[in-house]
Design a protein around this nucleic acid. Structure first.
Length: 477
RNA sequence: GGCGGCUUGGCCAAGGGGUAAGGCAACGGCCUGCAAAGCCGUUAUUCUCCGGUUCAAAUCCGGAAGCCGCCUCCA
């Protein structure tokens, strides 16, 4: 059972065979750090986090590079608007990005390079392209990549350069030899940040940093390159042009692109004003709920964010933890590491182009099976049943290391949920306990009218009571 | 206009030639003073539509409709 990956280049699922046995080099396009990150960034990062974890699990030695674009027109614009320096802005958002991703249980990549720390490499890369006749310098300080010098241009996005009516939507710069030629280096206007170069003071274009940095860390060609679907054209197409024109060898073996997050069935956009930021989502839902949601669809499909879908996912996570708690309370969580049926199903799903949706379903199926066994045996399964349950429990724990979900103890999970509810609603637990006590007394006296009245009163505060053998506990709805 | 994708039960969503996973919701049951929670069970003769290939199609091929994305900064 081997790993298959959908490759944008071929449009097919392909068997994964790394360039160097046992080693995987992976590069993923990170954010341009000029603003707060939204749920769409979170999806991309979480998806590739799971790819990274799964490759490591398959015993590959993975070098994972995820860059920060910290020199860009948008950053400069923001700097002009706010008066803050570009560096202050980028540092602020890099810091924020790391904090939010850490909160989402995302592993740090092997390297997280910044474009501004690699200007020398970028300049050297551009020089190589010019030397090879693949790029040209024009009066005024611009350097462009020459599309005509690279015959495979369009192979990733499956476009024919001749068909592209370039200039139809943007003004053509008449200094370019061809309208499709793109910027490698642009001169600095007064007041803009700049670096010295053979072509005068200026800054790199967007696409070149990824070619230069991936070369520095991963070499002329590497295994996996990832990013959002929107990057296929022009960004990744241009990266291929730069790197393959420069080295003459295949740049990337497998291109992996994740789909978008929609908000209530609409694309996130400035005009709709529906950008949903990671911090807002983290404020409302636990990191595990967010990850479970982001991984509930195959990564290439669009996924729709809404309060309803988050509520559903949240309920289904409760279900997993309730099962774990049940197994642990029955003393059946023996810490075995035997990999059972669940693990096989999970592995199969993950090997099928990282199908986390199918992988989640495998977990739910196992939980259902385990619950049924516990029910049928009144919580006292025979030896075979015990080992089955211990196996499911162990497999879920192993899976938690891949998906970054189900990582807490059930007790901690449920108590954290309760504490969050109290904090959100500013509720004093002592007051609740007093009411519960009063209700308990009423119930002993068979004064059910009063008991129900108290329950209704608490219900209005979104508090639900659960009467069990150990007494009454409460939680938020 | 060019390129790509999607359409599966009330909702979300797997499956991608051999007779429809899973989650949520709903309903029924166990439990309960009644509830809640939890658990169990039930819920698509059928996969947008029309043709075709095949012993066999949700799955392959052709066509139609609807929706979406990229082509411009974008995860």
């Amino acid at each position: 059972m081997s790993l298959k990956i959908y490759n944008t280049l071929s449009g097919k699922k392909e068997e994964f065979v790394p360039i160097n046995p046992g080693k995987v080099n992976m590069y993923v396009c990170g954010p341009t750090v000029y603003d707060t990150s939204h749920i769409g960034h979170a999806r991309s990062v979480v998806v590739f986090d799971v790819v990274y974890r799964w490759l490591q699990h398959l015993d590959y030695e993975v070098t994972y590079v995820r860059n920060f674009t910290d020199v860009d027109d948008k950053i400069i614009k923001k700097s002009n608007q706010t008066g803050e320096s570009c560096t202050a802005i980028t540092e602020k958002y890099i810091d924020e990005f790391h904090k939010e991703m850490d909160a989402l249980n995302v592993l740090r990549p092997t390297v997280a390079p910044k474009a501004t720390e690699h200007i020398d490499h970028i300049i050297r890369f551009i020089e190589m392209l010019i030397d090879k006749g693949k790029a040209y310098h024009v009066e005024g300080g611009d350097v462009y990549f020459s599309i005509k010098s690279f015959k495979d241009y369009g192979k990733l996005s499956h476009r024919n350069p001749d068909d592209m009516q370039a200039g139809a939507r943007i003004a053509v710069d008449e200094k370019k030899k061809s309208p499709l030629d793109f910027t490698l280096w642009k001169p600095a206007k007064p007041g803009e940040p700049y670096w010295e170069s053979p072509w005068g003071n200026g800054r790199p274009g967007w696409h070149i940093e990824c070619s230069a940095m991936s070369y520095e860390y991963l070499g002329e060609g590497f295994d996996i390159h990832g990013g959002g679907k929107d990057l296929i054209f022009p960004h990744h197409e241009n990266e291929i042009a730069q790197s393959e024109a420069c080295f003459g060898t295949e740049f990337v073996k497998y291109w992996v692109h994740n789909g978008f997050v929609d908000i209530n069935n609409e694309k996130m956009s400035k005009s709709l004003g529906n950008f949903t930021m990671i911090k807002e989502v983290l404020d409302k839902y636990s990191p595990e709920v967010i990850r479970l949601f982001l991984l509930s669809k195959q990564y290439r499909s669009p996924i729709d964010y809404s309060e309803d879908s988050m509520r559903e996912v949240s309920q289904s996570l409760d279900r997993i933890y309730a099962f774990l708690e049940r197994v642990e309370d029955a003393g059946l969580a023996t810490g075995t590491d035997s990999k059972g049926e669940l693990w096989d199903a999970f592995t199969q799903a993950m090997n099928d182009d990282f199908n986390s949706a199918k992988a989640q379903a495998a977990v739910f199926e196992a939980v259902k099976k385990g619950n049924k066994l516990l029910d049928d045996t009144n919580g006292k399964p025979d030896a075979a049943g015990q080992s089955l349950l211990a196996g499911i429990h162990a497999d879920i724990r192993t899976i938690s290391g891949i998906l970054g979900i189900f990582m807490m103890s059930p007790k901690d999970y449920f108590s954290a949920k309760k504490e969050k509810g109290m904090a959100d609603q500013d509720i004093d637990p002592a007051q609740i306990d007093a009411l519960i006590q009063e209700r308990a007394t009423a119930r002993t006296e068979k004064n059910f009218a009063r008991a129900d009245e108290i329950r209704d009163q608490l219900q209005e505060m979104n508090i639900v009571l659960e009467d069990g053998p150990e007494g009454t506990v409460w939680r938020f709805e």
